[in-house]
Amino acid sequence: MGTGKVLSFGELLLRICPDGDGQWLQENKLPFYVGGAELNVATALALWGVPSAYLTALPENFVSEQLLGYLKNHLIDTDAIVLQGDRIGLYYLPKGTDLKNAGVIYDRAGSAYADLTPGTIDWDKVFEGVSWFHFSAICPAINQNVADVCAEALQVAQERNIFVSLDLNYRAKLWKYGKDPIEAMPTLAKACDLIMGNVWAANKMLGMPLQEELVAEVEKEKLLQHATLTSEAILQEFPKCKIVANTFRFDHGAQGIRYFTTLYTQGELHVSQEYVVDQILDKVGSGDCFMAGLIYGFFHQNDPKTTLEFATAAAFKKLFIQSDATTTTVAEIEETIQAYAN
């Protein structure tokens, strides 16, 4: 598969991090990070030496110019980026490890990316020299137009025989335009070769069966059974798809985590080694890092098990990095696999 560029498509967001106590008001300072799920993937791939291109929409102003410079410094090909509209999407997330209770606030309505419409992007031109297209379920969650732009991209990708990966990122605070994920995602999933998510997201977004008794307790054998069940259901429902990956991430103690993943392909479920740790720093972007690791492995035509272990270790390392994108090198990821080997 590794013949051309990997193109990631999605919204560039700035993550703004007020602390929980309002200290930022005294200091007149707000930490922020450059993010967006697909940009996190593109950044990781570029860092790991995979030819990585990124497509988003940004307004024409000096902030965008600085961001484009930042992306180029990270060796990301920005040629396809659309300049239009008035604003860059933002989201607010209090500092700390637990995103689930933190209450993310989105401020992305009317952004340059949200204003994309079908016919704006010349996909034939954009896909020149591209062998892999990656997007996530966050894109069609924004509005109907962006969902239609995704459909348009997938049609051209299929015509050009480009490998397509989809991350079933579920964001409850999006999907506000009158469609449930289940009404939009299956059509898009039909065009994908690799689908990554977890058993709950596959149920919510693709209508795959969820057997409560298998996931009620955090019992590994039952979860692995369910991973097989979900993967086989996806492959049956979406014949183009040949690879399904699932992540399992559970809180461990007050601030720790337990993490393992699966990859199903050619009738076999591969299971990663398990990572258990008492203290982590930042959950944001860990799944994106896992996705990038899968792309890295398959791009280099590594076998499924090697690919899975690399992706899992990459995602695990991301839990200790205070930013949206990873800064961990290939060598460090390979050391981590060895250090935690069971």
Rank of each mutant, 00 (worst) to 15 (best):
T328Y: 02
Q155S: 13
M185I: 15
D19I: 06
N169R: 14
I88K: 02
L99R: 00
I257D: 06
D278E: 14
L55R: 05
L319W: 10
L294F: 07
A147M: 02
K222Q: 10
I234E: 03
C150V: 15
S111Q: 05
Y296F: 15
I295K: 13
N101S: 13
W200H: 11
R258D: 12
P304M: 14
L12A: 04
T328F: 10
T265Q: 12
G89R: 07
D77I: 07
E268W: 05
F290W: 07
S52D: 08
E183H: 13
M1W: 02
I257P: 02
I162F: 06
G297N: 08
E38C: 15
L116K: 03
T78K: 01
A80I: 00
T228D: 03
D77A: 05
T97G: 05
M208S: 11
L223I: 04
G267N: 08
K240A: 10
E65C: 00
Q273L: 04
D122T: 03
L224C: 08
T117L: 06
G119E: 03
E27T: 15
T247V: 05
P118I: 10
S231W: 04
D122I: 00
L99G: 10
A254Q: 12
L13T: 09
P118W: 01
D288E: 11
L90F: 13
I337Q: 14
F298T: 12
I142Q: 09
E217H: 10
E213K: 09
D324P: 06
F127D: 01
I182T: 12
M208D: 11
T120D: 08
A102W: 01
H134I: 14
K95E: 03
T187R: 15
G10D: 12
Q66K: 10
L93K: 12
Q266G: 03
L154K: 09
N302F: 15
K72L: 11
V244T: 05
V164F: 11
F298N: 07
G110M: 04
L210P: 06
V104W: 00
G69Y: 11
F62H: 13
Y70V: 09
A57E: 06
A191F: 09
P181V: 09
D193M: 07
G103P: 00
S165F: 07
E334A: 02
K317P: 01
M185V: 13
A42H: 04
E65A: 14
Q301V: 03
V41G: 08
G36K: 05
G69L: 13
D79M: 00
E38D: 14
A46L: 05
E309L: 12
Y54Q: 01
